[in-house]
Design a protein around this nucleic acid. Structure first.
Length: 893
DNA sequence: TGTGACCCCTAA
DNA sequence: TGAGTTAGGGGTCACA
């Protein structure tokens, strides 16, 4: 059959095949996913062989041929155990010049690490020796998650009772009957890249309710959603614990989801299921029945795998993995996408669905689950069902799946890598592909010289404190990627005195302000610049297609192109970070520092030039400048509300004022655009990003506000407490109001409001709900489940854990039998700040809480401190705000 | 009361 | 043992 599928993940199977010449090692790839038509698929791919490369260390001249001693050494390699063949050499580019590179084929992928080590000890330089075998297929076939295939059908789910099929599956390289709609077989050559399409995934979302006393599972609920049709179905489980686990497993296998989600399943539900499985299992069969969620046969051999196994597992602290399905914790996705001030399910649900009361009302006391379950199991069950459904709503609201799918499509990786992998894996996928095409040897991760200290980053200009009218904000479009392209910055273009090949005479090299040198694209086009140019072009295409789809009102296409252009942007911006990191395989410490050095040079020279023209720069950060526009200060900067009313009535004075204001905006736009155009270079495009009728900062870098009047009207706030998730709502609300006064230049009203708010707090008149502080808390879980504070080690992450409020709150949570997971935000109230360390109490929403009064004075002082920085500009200090009147000073006389 | 270490979070 | 970067503000604690 011919078809298209979206690949979730893949793994490989090793086996021996009997041939007339004796047994031959064979490696079969299993690719799991779903077809465009909605069938789940296990595709058994044949013909991919495990290989890596090696080259002799030391000077070597291309024209001299292969010296005899090397021929001998190659013979020796060929004779090594588990080596099937050595081919080559091929001349490849390495950091130290062109080298002959031999390709070593091994019997199985798992032989590579040991052989790699041996060869290194024998003075070979090893390349491409740490690329996972499945990735090798993606690289060699130049495919991403969306593929087209021609394959033989080996098994169909509908033939469930046909046991003769087993032999055919084994012949095709499989283990047993896969719990998928279609089991297919093909050769690598029958796999091709397909245009990206939205895969009609099936998502499974579940929730457990557990006994705090016995750590057992009391009940569970699960939903399955078909993204294609939007249809959902619910399943509930109660009764005997082993039965609950078995039925859950049966549902997973029958419903066959591609993605598994839930709220905080990474740190709670999955570890709990793993623990309970350990406790309940008797022999391998029961083990697989209890937790065999993987998309593979329920066989004993499948239990032994370390990853992508039949049973979900996790190495260290990374995401959970299992065969053929992707685990996507909604907690983690929501946290990344929304950066919520707090991270409980009900908080996130309220944030996203404020009007939908049912989605966030609290009706069960989670800290008292045993009693709740004993006395009102139906309510608990309903609550469980709702909490299993919410993750699906949340994932949909934040478009987590299509966004990850777009990243996978752009980076050409399986869905699972886009969902749970690291940034460097995405970059690797693109760079290694190109390296192979360009015959650049691929160094091992960790082979780069360690970076000494930090590199210097972006330039941040001192901000001019106070209120500034008519400010044009200009910034460089994709600054770091543009620099990498313009200066041809790449691992492969860097000129090093240690290299045998030096640039030819007359080559116009790029010399960074740091002294690092790169060859021009005309001599050798860098891989990174080539990739970035390609990505930029892709983004332009998607943006154009997005606009077209918007005009034609095609919603699906709009979403698709928006996801794609966004994914391209994310990926482009990841390049700098990865190449500036100390460990990436294709990096060198000069790359990152050259990029930032050129960036500083660019922005500083523009600042100087604009200032020379006589225009003040009030602020600049890395790739942006805030320029004072030459606009008559008499021109009105805003319309008051009363004036807007008068305007409606056709009042002449109001009309005239509006006209003048609009002319002000227009002249700012004209100025900004003209300036941007004049300072743009082909390789460094400066854009007029927005126009501010007024800009304000109290004088600290990275903290400012502005009234945007072009291209839209909105208030812009950066850095201040309103933006921070570790502040408290009353403070952020107050500050936002203060900013409105500030931008309207209403100093008196601003101060009056500030005093009033501080006083209210000082008198403890504010609802404690608006004083909840939240901070993330680290710590390493040393025992699961976490029952006592001793089960989490905070000393590895904190120099003095006992003095950290968030640690004390986390410990209290644990004592109360509430969940704690590494990195989670914990909420608390300050009850007594007169002591050091201050006294805090956890803030709990759904559970019974410690009743304690908050420390009004502490909150008032913190509010006054924050507001004071702003009111200072209007003559009032934080102390004055606390007192409610101004200290008579020398200047008052 | 001032200072430095440590920590969190944000801007870019 | 896992892995995108640096610049920067500001809160809290410990200690002089």
């Amino acid at each position: 059959m011919k078809g298209q599928m979206g690949i979730i993940s893949g793994r490989y199977r090793s086996r021996e095949r009997k041939t007339p010449d004796g047994p031959k090692p064979e490696t079969v790839l299993e690719l799991f996913g779903r077809s465009d038509e909605g069938s789940s698929i296990c595709l058994l791919v044949h013909g991919q062989r495990p290989t890596f490369e090696c080259a002799p260390i030391g000077e070597w001249h291309v024209d001299e041929g292969i010296p005899p001693f090397l021929v001998d050494r190659i013979k020796h390699v060929k004779a090594m155990e588990h080596v099937v063949d050595v081919s080559g050499p091929v001349i490849k580019w390495t950091q130290l010049g062109e080298r002959p590179v031999w390709t070593i084929e091994t019997e199985q992928p798992f032989h590579v690490p040991a052989l790699r080590k041996t060869l290194r000890s024998q003075s070979w330089q090893v390349f491409s020796g740490d690329i996972p075998f499945v990735n090798r297929l993606f690289l060699d076939r130049d495919i991403g998650m969306h593929v087209a295939f021609t394959a033989d059908v080996v098994d169909r789910r509908v033939n469930e009772d046909d046991n003769d099929i087993l032999a055919a599956i084994v012949d095709a390289g499989g283990e047993g009957r896969y719990p998928v709609d279609l089991t297919l077989r093909c050769d690598v050559k029958q796999l091709q890249a397909a245009e990206p399409f939205q895969v009609p995934f099936r998502i499974f979302s579940f929730d457990l309710e557990t006994s705090i006393e016995h750590e057992t599972v009391l009940c569970a609920a699960a939903w399955i959603e078909d993204i294609g049709t939007g249809r959902r179905e619910v399943f509930t489980y109660r009764g005997d614990e082993a039965d609950i686990l078995k039925q859950l497993t049966a549902t997973v296998r029958e419903q066959d989801p591609d993605i598994i989600t839930g709220y905080n399943i990474d740190n709670f539900d999955l570890p709990r299921l793993a623990d309970r499985t350990q406790a309940l299992k008797r022999g391998w069969e029961l083990h697989t029945e209890l937790f065999g969620w993987g998309r593979v046969p329920q066989r004993e051999s499948e239990l032994k795998r370390q990853r992508d196994a039949l049973v979900p597992k996790r190495q260290s602290n990374r995401a959970w993995n299992l065969a053929g399905r992707a685990v996507m914790d909604t907690w983690w996705q929501a946290r990344q996408a929304l950066k919520p001030r707090r991270e409980t399910l009900s908080f996130v649900a309220t944030l996203l669905f404020p009007d939908d009361e049912d989605k966030h009302k609290m009706d069960v006391d989670a800290s008292n689950m045993d009693e709740e379950w004993a006395t009102r199991p139906d309510e608990v069950m309903a609550y469980c069902e709702r909490d299993a459904a919410l993750p699906l709503d949340i994932l949909k609201a934040i478009q987590a799946v299509p966004r990850k799918e777009a990243v996978a499509a752009v980076a050409k990786v399986p869905f699972e890598t886009a969902a749970n992998g690291s940034t460097s894996q995405l970059i690797d996928s693109l760079v290694i592909r190109l390296a192979d095409q360009q015959r650049v040897a691929v160094p091992l991760t960790g082979s780069a010289e360690a970076k000494v200290g930090q590199i210097t980053g972006g330039y941040v200009h001192d901000v001019e404190a106070g209120l500034h009218p008519w400010i044009a904000v200009l910034d460089f479009k994709s600054m770091y990627p543009s620099i990498m392209i313009a200066r041809n910055i790449c691992y492969t273009t860097r000129v090093d005195p240690a290299q045998s090949y030096q640039p030819v005479e007359g080559e116009s090299l790029h010399e960074a302000p740091t002294g690092a040198v790169f060859r021009p694209a005309s001599a050798r086009k860098g891989m990174v610049p080539a990739l970035l140019e390609n990505l930029m072009a892709q983004r332009d295409e998607h943006k154009a297609a997005l606009k077209k789809a918007q005009r034609e009102d095609r919603t699906v296409a709009v979403e698709f192109h928006d996801s794609m252009q966004y994914a391209v942007k994310i990926l482009m911006n990841s390049f700098y970070g990865v190449f500036a990191s100390g460990f990436y395989r294709f990096t060198h410490r000069d790359l990152g520092s050259s990029i930032t050095a050129w960036a500083r040079q660019n922005i500083k020279s523009i600042i100087a030039a604009v200032e020379d023209e006589g225009h003040g720069i009030v602020y600049s950060d890395t790739d942006s400048i805030f320029v004072r526009c030459p606009i008559d200060p008499e021109i009105p900067r805003r319309m008051e509300e009363e004036e807007l009313v008068l305007l409606e009535q056709g009042d002449k004075a109001a009309l005239a004022k509006e006209k003048a204001y609009k002319e002000g905006v227009q002249s700012m736009v004209k100025f900004g655009k003209e300036l941007a155009k004049r300072y743009s270079r082909e390789s460094a495009i400066l854009e007029f990003e927005r126009g501010l009728s007024v800009f304000f900062s109290h004088g600290a870098k990275k903290r400012y506000i502005g009234q945007v009047v072009w291209p839209s009207e909105e208030m812009l706030i950066r850095g201040y407490e309103t933006q921070r998730t570790d502040s408290f709502p009353y403070l952020t609300e107050t500050m936002k109001e203060i900013f409105k006064f500030a931008l309207a230049d209403q100093g008196d009203a601003l101060v009056e409001y500030a005093i009033h708010r501080v006083q209210d707090l000082n008198e403890a008149k504010v609802n404690p709900q608006r004083l909840v502080l939240a901070k993330s808390c680290k710590g390493r879980v040393v025992r699961t489940p976490v029952k006592s504070p001793a089960d989490v080690d905070f000393t590895k992450d904190y120099a003095n854990p006992d003095s950290m409020a968030q640690v004390r709150v986390a410990r209290r949570r644990i004592e109360l039998g509430l969940g704690f997971t590494t990195g989670m935000k914990v909420s608390y109230l300050v009850t007594d700040a007169s002591r050091s360390p201050m006294k805090v109490t956890p803030w709990l929403e759904a559970e019974s809480m410690d009743e304690e009064a908050y420390d009004g004075r502490f909150y008032a002082e913190r509010l006054a401190a924050a507001l004071g920085r702003i009111t200072e500009a209007f003559g009032w200090s934080a102390k004055d705000l606390m007192k409610g009147n101004k200290q008579a000073s020398l200047f008052d006389f």
